[in-house]
């Protein structure tokens, strides 16, 4: 028993710091951000500007690139990026359409 315990690599809640160690946390959400690149400042002006979505995203899944991209595997769908975007370029859309009448 004790020898077994010593060999158990999962005896305690200890993980290796790595992307995906806690699973794909993006699957918690029911909303996902969709960027309209025509409205997004860096893409439309072709300049490294704004990036407020990158700055405010609490999960650091937004890239500071042209165009801006979002890693939906780890986006929790909080909508902060859409709230902060000065160009109204981000819309939160439902991932799975469901029958609201149910």
């Amino acid at each position: 028993m004790t020898a077994m315990e010593k060999k158990d690599p999962f005896i305690a809640g200890i993980c290796i710091p790595a992307v995906g160690e806690a699973g794909k946390t993006g699957d918690w959400s029911d909303l996902k951000p969709v960027i309209d690149q025509a409205k997004c400042i860096p893409a439309s002006k072709n300049k490294p500007a704004c990036f407020l979505c990158w700055l405010y995203c609490p999960d650091a899944v937004v890239t500071m690139t042209i165009p801006v991209t979002i890693d939906l595997d780890y986006c929790k769908g909080c909508g902060i990026c859409a709230e902060e975007c000065p160009a109204n370029a981000i819309k939160m859309v439902r991932k799975v359409e469901c029958d609201e009448s149910l």
Binding site: E5, I14, I16, G20, G23
Partner: peptide, 30 residues
């Protein structure tokens, strides 16, 4: 029970979920 050092960094007691989950290596964990 677990070695933790600058050479072998670890995340201690992160959020655990109701279900079992795969880690980054695809191993099914507690």
């Amino acid at each position: 029970h677990t070695e933790i050092s600058p050479e072998s960094p670890k995340t201690v007691n992160p959020v655990f979920f109701p279900w079992r989950r795969e880690n980054h290596e695809g191993v099914l964990c507690d």
